[in-house]
Design a protein around this nucleic acid. Structure first.
Length: 381
RNA sequence: GGAGGGAUAGCGAAGUGGCCAAACGCAGCGGACUGUAAAUCCGUUCCUUCGGGUUCGUAGGUUCAAAUCCUACUCCCUCCA
């Protein structure tokens, strides 16, 4: 096993669950885990300044290979001195490989053993992304953590197809590892796939852990399947991953799934949900979802969340934020984005504290109760 | 005083005898959103006991049938005096 530039240090495991408290060290600092990572696809967490992300406690953010490759192009980012310099963010950066776009742009791409042929979503031009190309681009972008180029099939894909896909993703992972040019400064993660099939998840985990990745992520979840299905898969998948490396559950960002994921031994999460719903006028609060753009808040002069200490909640009211959003003022989107990110980062902070104190189950119970997950027909993420 | 144009649902605006409870846009209301083709998308907005009932400035009329044709009236706009 070589020395990776990204390392995991386990501090303790919660007494009653599989939850892990730890630290991940990257060339751009150390952050505590479990951690939620804000998503900044195009080298910006939409509407947020890096200073604000730092202020709210983000230690690492995401960006995206496919999107940056198309615009502005990997060479420009490289010439700028890499992503950190380009976007003025000196903490951790993780780039997704473009694997998710194999899923989300499914109707304009074609998968082959060599790689994936895409149609650019920007101008329709023909593109080709391979495991080597994805690594090559990420080497130029210069994130602390790079992801292997994988295929993320739909959860309800057939066993036969999923099996073929898993095997190909494993081969792609190995090819990516070989193509990696900066193993001393950038860590590369492998992505476990396999849909809802236990033996395929096992196969995928076995293939990938036989290779020396800096960390492992669990992909192919949170793609529309019921939460119980995701938890079921996590139950048998996280135990397949090495104890001494980071575990990253991709695409998860609902409060309950974050806690459930932590209890099953996950260290890192990312999700566009908090920032996307924020831009669409919805917020997460300790009392559950609050659609601040709704008429009910027109004359509500309380903060979004009376238990929140974020910049938004310390200074602005629901009525004002609703007004801004209804008026399409960008400041409104900033305020809700700030709050939602703060909410999840703060949630993870509380989760870490609960692990430290061995009372994660109690914490979960009271959080769920407050948030409204225990109510029968509660509308919540 | 004279000549012409116009009044359509919350607003703007199509429609000029039947397929019109009336296109479309906006505004309003609600919903969706999970490794971001998303500051996007979807639904809905006369009343209703869901059978139907009342609408297209107002009042009459023609017609089997009128937002659409005719008459009068009211109001608005433009031009001329």
């Amino acid at each position: 096993m070589s020395n990776h530039p990204v390392t995991y240090q386990l501090e303790k495991k919660e007494k009653h669950t599989g939850a892990r408290l730890g630290k991940i060290t990257t060339p751009h600092g150390t952050f505590e885990t479990p951690m939620f990572m804000p998503v900044g696809t195009l080298a910006t967490v939409k509407t947020m300044a890096p200073e604000e992300l730092e202020e709210m406690g983000a230690g690492i953010i995401l960006s995206n290979t496919y999107h940056l490759w198309l615009r502005p192009g990997a060479d420009i980012v490289e010439e700028a001195g890499g992503l950190h310099s380009f976007m003025n963010w000196d903490k951790g950066i993780l780039t997704d490989s473009g694997g998710f776009q194999v899923f989300s742009l499914a109707h304009m791409r074609k998968i082959e053993e060599e790689g994936v042929h895409f149609r650019s979503h920007l101008d329709g031009s023909k593109l080709f992304l391979s495991p080597e190309k994805a690594i090559n681009v990420q080497n130029k972008l210069g994130p602390d953590i790079m992801m292997s180029f994988d295929e993320c099939p739909p959860f309800d894909e057939s066993y036969d197809y999923t099996k073929k896909s898993v095997e190909r993703t494993s081969r792609w992972a190995e090819r990516g590892l070989k193509a990696h040019q900066n193993p001393d400064t950038q860590g590369l993660f492998g992505i476990v796939q396999g849909g809802g099939f236990e033996d395929l998840r096992k196969q995928s985990a076995k293939d990938l852990t036989s290779l020396d990745f800096a960390g492992y992520s669990i992909g192919g979840l949170s793609v529309g399947e019921p939460k119980e299905e995701m938890y079921r898969v996590l139950d048998f998948t996280t135990p397949l991953l090495p104890e001494d490396k980071p575990r990253y559950l991709m695409g998860v960002g609902t409060p309950d799934a974050l806690i459930e994921g932590v209890m099953r031994g996950v260290d890192m999460f990312d999700c566009v949900l908090p920032t996307r719903i924020a831009r669409n006028g919805t917020t997460m609060t300790s009392k559950g979802r609050l659609v601040v753009k709704n008429a009910a808040y027109a004359k509500d002069f309380r903060p979004l969340d009376e238990n929140c200490n974020c910049y938004t909640c310390r200074n602005y009211t629901r009525a004002y934020i609703r007004h801004l959003i209804k008026s399409e003022e960008t400041f409104g989107l900033r305020l809700t984005s700030y709050h939602n990110l703060y909410f999840l980062l703060d949630l993870m902070k509380k989760v870490r504290q609960a692990i430290r104190e061995d009372n994660l189950l109690e914490f979960k119970e009271s959080f769920f109760e407050e948030y409204g997950y225990n109510k029968p027909n509660a509308k919540n993420f």
